[in-house]
C-alpha cells in the first residue's frame, strides 16, 4: 500500500498552497502566519491539540471563514479573489467531511446523497442519479442502508455517509475534519482504511484535521504539527515523532508510543 500511495503523489503539482495565513477572533489570535503546501495525490494530516486552530484552518480552506491576512490557493485559484460563483465552482471540486457528519436530518440516506447532485447538475435522469448514489454508497459500504434515515445509523456509518456525500461530486481535494473523533478503535480503523481507499480510488489530495495519531500515521504521507497557531514541524510521521521540539514531544508522549 505504501508503494501505491507514493506513486499517486505528483511532487510537481501543488494543489493547496497556504501562505502567511492569519486569523483572529476578537483579541484571540488563532492562526499566526501559517504556511503549507499539499501536492497532488498526497494525504496530509494537521495534528494539534484541541483549540490549536485546526478546524479554523480547514474552514478557511473551504471558504466558510475568511482569513484576516494571507493567501490560500486551491487548484490554482486564489480563494480571496474568487467571486461567489467561482467559489461555488471550486467547491464542487472539493469535498468536506464534517466532524459531526452534518447529515440532513429531514432527508433519507438516498436524498442526502442525491441532494447536492441534483442541486448542482440540472437535467440528470432518475437513472443517472440512482447510479451515482449507488456508486458512492457502494464505495463506503453502505449500499444496504439506502432507504434508511440518518438517525437510524451508527456513528461510524454516519461518518461514512458524510464521506459518501462528498464523493458523489467526484472531488479532487478532500478535507476531513476529525474523521475518527468519538468512534471506537475498530470503527476508527475502518474509517482510516476508507480514507486511504478514497485517496486511491478517486485520486484525491487530502488534508486531514485530527488529534488521533493512529489516523495520521495510517492515512497520511506527511504530518504538520500545529501548535499555538503556527506549524512547528512538517514532515513524515517519523520525522515529526523524532523531533527535539519540546512541545511536539510533549504532545506525542501523552498520546502515542510507536
Amino acid at each position: 500500500m505504501e508503494k501505491d500511495k507514493i506513486q499517486l503523489i505528483n511532487p510537481e503539482e501543488t494543489v493547496i498552497k497556504i501562505e502567511e495565513l492569519y486569523k483572529s477572533f476578537g483579541e484571540l489570535e488563532v492562526l499566526k502566519g501559517v504556511d503549507l503546501t499539499v501536492q497532488k495525490g498526497e494525504n496530509l494530516a494537521v495534528l494539534g491539540r484541541s483549540g490549536s486552530g485546526k478546524s479554523v484552518l480547514i474552514k478557511i480552506l473551504a471558504g466558510l471563514l475568511k482569513p484576516d491576512r494571507g493567501n490560500v490557493t486551491m487548484l490554482g485559484k486564489q480563494l480571496g479573489q474568487l467571486q461567489p460563483k467561482e467559489l461555488d465552482e471550486l467547491r464542487l471540486r472539493m469535498g468536506f467531511s464534517f466532524q459531526s457528519s452534518a447529515l440532513y436530518d429531514g432527508m433519507s440516506v438516498f436524498d442526502n446523497l442525491s441532494f447536492p447532485l441534483t442541486m448542482n447538475i440540472k437535467h440528470l435522469s432518475r437513472k443517472q442519479v440512482n447510479d451515482a448514489v449507488e456508486e458512492a454508497l457502494d464505495a463506503v459500504g453502505l449500499i444496504d442502508k439506502i432507504e434508511r434515515n440518518p438517525e437510524e445509523l451508527s456513528g461510524g456509518q454516519r461518518k461514512r455517509l458524510g464521506i459518501a456525500r462528498t464523493l458523489i461530486m467526484k472531488p479532487e481535494i478532500m478535507l476531513y475534519d476529525e474523521p475518527t473523533a468519538g468512534l471506537d478503535p475498530v470503527t476508527c480503523a475502518e474509517i482510516n482504511a476508507l480514507i486511504v481507499e478514497v485517496q486511491q480510488q478517486y485520486k484525491t489530495s487530502s488534508i486531514i484535521i485530527t488529534h488521533d495519531l493512529t489516523c495520521a500515521k495510517n492515512t497520511c504521507e506527511r504530518i504538520a504539527m500545529l501548535i499555538d497557531g503556527t506549524f512547528l514541524k512538517i514532515g513524515t510521521f517519523e520525522d515529526v515523532f523524532n523531533t527535539d521540539e519540546e512541545q511536539i514531544k510533549k504532545f506525542f508522549s501523552y498520546n502515542f508510543t510507536l
Binding site: K59, G63, L64, R91, F96, A102, Y104, M119, N120, R165
Partner: peptide, 13 residues
C-alpha cells in the same frame, strides 16, 4: 449541527 455549512461547501446557497 453544521448542516447549513454542509450546504455551503456543497455549492448550494
Amino acid at each position: 449541527t453544521e448542516q447549513i455549512d454542509a450546504m455551503e461547501v456543497s455549492a448550494i446557497n
